[in-house]
Design a protein around this nucleic acid. Structure first.
Ligand SMILES: [Zn+2]
Ligand SMILES: [Zn+2]
Ligand SMILES: [Zn+2]
Ligand SMILES: [Zn+2]
Lengths: 143, 143
DNA sequence: TCTCGATCCTCCAGTCTCTGGAGAATTTAG
DNA sequence: CTAAATTCTCCAGAGACTGGAGGATCGAGA
């Protein structure tokens, strides 16, 4: 049978790698349910809380926003429904990542050109400064 | 000869594509100098301000942080010095962009795997939810 | 049992880069 | 002259935490 453990917030933090203030923050925004308290008002957690917090941490590491995680958690709590919505959320996130990559790659190209084009002399003739001062030096017309 | 124009903040905003509250914000953090005021306390700008603000906007579009821009502006104001520092700043920024791209590409791979692995049935067996619940499903050991 | 350091509590402020609204004053167009 | 547009200051909010102040409580050793 599973261990009937009751964890302090510090133990939960260690087990999940999430900092204590962050745990309290997640509770305050309703991502974690309000933890039951001891007689002296300290939060206690069980294994379910560990799993939920790990889920949150992992989703955050994968770049999901809190609002998305809130919905994913609600879905995870309801195993019978179709997973269309969860998949759509993930696919939307994927598209967002891809567009951020594309944007950053364009930036990288411009900044690289900026850096490589400089003869390393005086600011007067610095290609970096010139490019910054005038977008006409850029390849892409928008950034 | 250059037009001896005196612009309102609204005209400056139109000319540079920077919103009015943002212009005031830049002034408040010292990126833009305090604009001279009319008798009725309205800010006035000249062509130099237009150039400075365009420089800021372009640098922001290229992803430079405000602190970096502050330094770049100081350098641009001093054309005689060597441009080593400006170039170093840009190179540092380039490295930062590259590392963000690498991180996002790793994320993209994981999220794509997550999405592609789902058979689109019930939440119970949803690959998206499974992966989120357990990092062991991931390829990279860190995100 | 006493005490001390570790842990916990709440509340608040700060991070970063804006963005927008309230309410008042002034300018501009018709 | 009036009404609409613009500007002013101040303040709050966004997202996702992070950290500090000041105080209460816990566990372990003497
Ligand atoms: Zn240079
Ligand atoms: Zn450009
Ligand atoms: Zn699914
Ligand atoms: Zn993972």
């Amino acid at each position: 049978m599973p261990t009937m453990s009751s964890l302090t917030i510090g133990a939960l933090a260690k087990r999940t790698g999430v900092k204590i203030p962050t745990i309290r923050y997640y509770e305050s925004i309703g991502l974690l349910p309000e933890a039951p308290r001891t007689g002296s008002n300290r939060r206690t957690y069980d294994d379910k809380a560990v799993n939920r917090l790990r889920f949150i941490r992992h989703a955050r590491e994968l770049g999901f926003e809190v609002e998305a995680i809130r919905q994913l958690l609600a879905m995870a709590d309801d195993p019978g429904r179709p997973c269309r919505d969860a998949d759509l959320l993930a696919r939307t996130h994927l598209a967002e990542i891809e567009s951020r990559i594309a944007r950053l790659e364009a930036l990288r190209d411009e900044v690289r050109r900026m850096v490589d084009g400089c003869a390393q002399d005086q600011v007067r003739s610095c290609h970096v400064i010139e490019v910054l001062a005038d977008h006409a030096h850029c390849l892409h017309d928008r950034h």
